[in-house]
């Protein structure tokens, strides 16, 4: 019983962390129409940043700043934000394919750097030796995982509320205005490239937060954690859940992560031994098919964006009771 329960907590923690990343992507893609092809780079920046800033000093490696945990997490988010700012500054004025390609390139280069730079990130061995916060007080067992899950859940809720407020605010309206018709927004004196940059950086910082939590959860991060696979998964979560809808984003995260976990388990359990090598390929074909199928048949996702007219015009027909 405790085994099942502890697995459920483990699953829900991972899904919640990914949901935070999906929320970040939803701000970029769902609300602003920015294609981020390198989600994993910003996620990874958060994870590596947190562990390097908060980890103990290690021989032959930069880092070991041993910052207190909140500072390390904020630092990781800042690394993600700075990376997004540089990429955004270079590409957001150009047509949208440039952002897609450049972000994809960031992810390739980031993974490549982490794999090779032993002095910075431990190379292929990754960053080890990170002390999880409050471990001395709570210990390492089930209780710690439960507490950590509650903390992640609270952060997820906080992120959700923050984004809901942001989207409902005048700034959120501006984002949608630019997504729908850039020139119209420009004619009203708004600066699309600056607003886009703000949204892009904010979304990436949220992905960095998710990455920081992920790194904390495992107390370890290696180049294997920053493969392009994660970008596909986060994208699939958003597309299936419903781009533009924060509830859809969270729902999609749990649904796809559940499907991914179950399909992986089923393939390893029921597939013949000689086919085990190919379970990864089958999973990728499935996730690719889910993405393409959704775009062809239900591009709005399972929970579509609800467009609300926030202020009714002075047209008397629209007035209540008339």
């Amino acid at each position: 019983m405790i085994g099942v329960l502890s697995y459920l907590v483990f699953f829900a923690t991972t899904a919640s962390i990914l949901a935070i990343a999906v929320l970040g992507l939803n701000l970029q893609w769902g609300n602003t129409g920015l294609f981020n092809g390198g989600v994993v780079a910003f996620f990874g920046a958060g994870a590596y940043g947190t562990l390097i800033l908060g980890g103990p000093p290690q021989e032959g490696m930069v880092g070991g700043f041993a910052l207190t945990y909140p500072m390390a997490l904020l630092g990781g988010m800042a690394v993600a934000g700075v990376m997004a700012w540089i990429v955004g500054l270079l590409t957001l004025r150009l047509r949208h394919d440039y952002l897609a390609i450049a972000t994809f390139g960031v992810a390739v280069a980031f993974e490549n750097l982490m794999r090779n730079a032993e002095w910075l990130a431990g190379g292929a061995k990754g960053v080890r030796g990170f002390e999880r916060p409050f471990r001395e007080a709570i210990g390492d067992g089930f209780l710690y995982n439960l507490v950590f899950f509650v903390a992640v859940l609270l952060i997820l809720i906080a992120t959700y509320v923050f984004l809901e407020r942001l989207v409902a605010s005048p700034f959120g309206r501006l984002l949608r205005a630019i997504r729908e018709d850039e020139e119209a927004a420009q004619s009203l004196g708004k600066s699309p490239s600056r607003v886009r940059l703000t949204a892009f950086v904010t979304g990436s910082v949220i992905m960095g937060l998710a990455g920081g939590l992920y790194g904390t959860f495992y107390a370890f991060v290696s180049p294997q954690d920053v493969l392009p696979t994660l970008t596909f998964q986060v994208w699939a979560m958003l597309i299936v859940g419903g781009a533009g809808n924060n509830r859809g984003a969270v729902f999609g995260a749990f649904l796809i992560w559940g499907a991914w976990t179950i399909s992986g388990w089923a393939l390893s359990r029921f597939a013949p031994v000689e086919a085990q090598l190919y379970t990864g390929s089958v999973q990728f074909i499935l996730i690719g098919a889910v993405i393409v199928g959704m775009l062809v048949w239900r591009p709005q996702g399972l929970l579509p964006e609800r467009l609300i007219v926030s202020q009714q015009g002075s047209n008397p027909v629209n007035k209540r009771g008339e």
Binding site: G33, F35, G37, H96, D97, A100, F232, W235, I239, G280, S281, V282, F284, I285, I287, G288, A289, V290, I291, V292, L295, V296, P299
Partner: peptide, 16 residues
């Protein structure tokens, strides 16, 4: 814009 993403999915399918 979704075309870009559809091509991501297609790449995964063909490659695997």
């Amino acid at each position: 814009l979704s075309m870009v993403f559809a091509s991501f999915g297609m790449a995964l399918i063909v490659r695997n």
